[in-house]
Computed example of a mutant assay.
Amino acid sequence: MNEIIQTLQYYMGFPFVRNAIIVGLLIALCSSLLGVTLVLKRFSFIGDGLSHVAFGAMSVSTVISVVLKQASRGESAFAKFLEDTNGMVIILPVTLLAAILLLRTGQNTKIKGDAAIAMISVGSLALGYMLVNMYSASANVSGDVCSTLFGSTSILTLKDGEVKLCAVLAAVVITVFIIFYNRIFSVTFDENFAKASGVKSDGYNLLIAVITAMIIVLAMNLVGSLLISALIIFPALSAMRLFKSFKSVVICSAVISVLCAGIGMIASILYSTPVGSTIVTADIAVFLIFSIIAAVTKRN
């Protein structure tokens, strides 16, 4: 035990480790806030669809950076800017646009919501993988794709600019959720009643989709594109095993998400396991524990 504590103290002495943990906890908190709403509104798969879109946008950003470098012989200022911001200047707008399109297309009677998500997500994933193979920035294409999809140690190599951007975006998400909490609550539980009460439900649905897109972009470095939905959904489902009120579920979900992210990242640092998979494994373990507690309490 003392050896583990000493090892942890040693790693905590590095600024990049502290930055990674701060960003990871902020991302986990943001994910949990919207997770409850997405599960209750049956929008769970929108996170999965947007994560695929973000992967496609990241591939486009990589291709643009490679092409500009080749054209300018490595002297392109914009290519360097894309690398410094990890392509965020392209990934964030594209993912936000996809969130709006998913919402609008899902309301179209010709293309249902689930079909729209499948169409956009699969198309983006296929396009992104094709672009990465055609314009690879390194020789290890399979490794790069696997790291992007399932997460890697990239969370431990965050630059100061990325940390500040993540902190700002996380602050925006948390602030918006707190300010519009009552409206989000009403739209989540009874959209028809909310409309009758004068609440602009379409606008708040759009707000939820946009915030979800921001969370997806934030979480890509932490857990990878394919595991983002788990980060959003599992804490909410775990909290729903024991609590029934919306506020209680949101608070419990936030606590679970932050604790699992912290435990997962620390375990990843100590035992050299994949960051994203370790965090999701912790979330799954908590879900199973809460499910067992719920089953036992119901019997009694």
Rank of each mutant, 00 (worst) to 15 (best):
Thr7Arg: 15
Leu8Arg: 14
Gln9Ser: 15
Tyr10Thr: 15
Met12Ser: 10
Arg18Phe: 01
Ala20Arg: 07
Ala20Thr: 13
Leu26His: 06
Cys30His: 05
Ser31Cys: 13
Leu33Gln: 14
Val36Pro: 05
Thr37Trp: 03
Leu38Ala: 10
Leu40Tyr: 04
Gly47Thr: 09
Gly49Arg: 10
Leu50Val: 11
Phe55Ile: 09
Ile64Ser: 04
Ser65Glu: 03
Ser72Gln: 02
Glu75Ser: 13
Phe78Trp: 02
Thr85Met: 14
Gly87Met: 06
Ile90Arg: 08
Pro93Ile: 04
Leu101Ala: 15
Leu103Phe: 01
Gly106Pro: 10
Asn108Gln: 09
Gly113Ala: 12
Ala115Ile: 10
Ala116Ile: 09
Ile117Val: 15
Val122Asp: 00
Tyr129Asn: 15
Met130Val: 11
Val132Gly: 01
Ala137Ile: 06
Ala137Gly: 14
Asn140His: 07
Val141Met: 06
Gly143Ile: 07
Asp144Gly: 09
Ser147His: 08
Thr148Met: 09
Phe150Gly: 11
Gly151Asn: 05
Ser152Pro: 01
Thr157Cys: 00
Leu158Arg: 04
Glu162Gln: 15
Val163Cys: 12
Lys164Gly: 00
Lys164Phe: 01
Val173Ser: 09
Val173Leu: 10
Phe177Gly: 00
Phe180Asn: 11
Phe180Trp: 06
Asn192Thr: 12
Asn192Leu: 03
Phe193Asn: 10
Ala194Gln: 06
Ser197Asp: 05
Gly198Phe: 01
Val210Pro: 04
Val210Lys: 07
Thr212Ala: 03
Leu218Met: 15
Val223Ile: 06
Ala230Asp: 02
Ile232Ala: 04
Ala239Ile: 08
Arg241Met: 12
Lys247Met: 01
Ser248Asn: 11
Ile251Ala: 14
Ser253Tyr: 02
Ser257Glu: 02
Val258Gly: 09
Gly264Thr: 10
Met265His: 07
Ala267Asn: 13
Ala267Asp: 05
Ala267Gln: 09
Tyr271Thr: 13
Ser277Trp: 01
Val280Asp: 04
Thr281Lys: 01
Asp283Arg: 02
Asp283Tyr: 06
Ile284His: 01
Ile289Arg: 05
Phe290Arg: 06
Ala294Ile: 13
Ala294Asn: 14
Thr297Ile: 12
Lys298Ala: 06
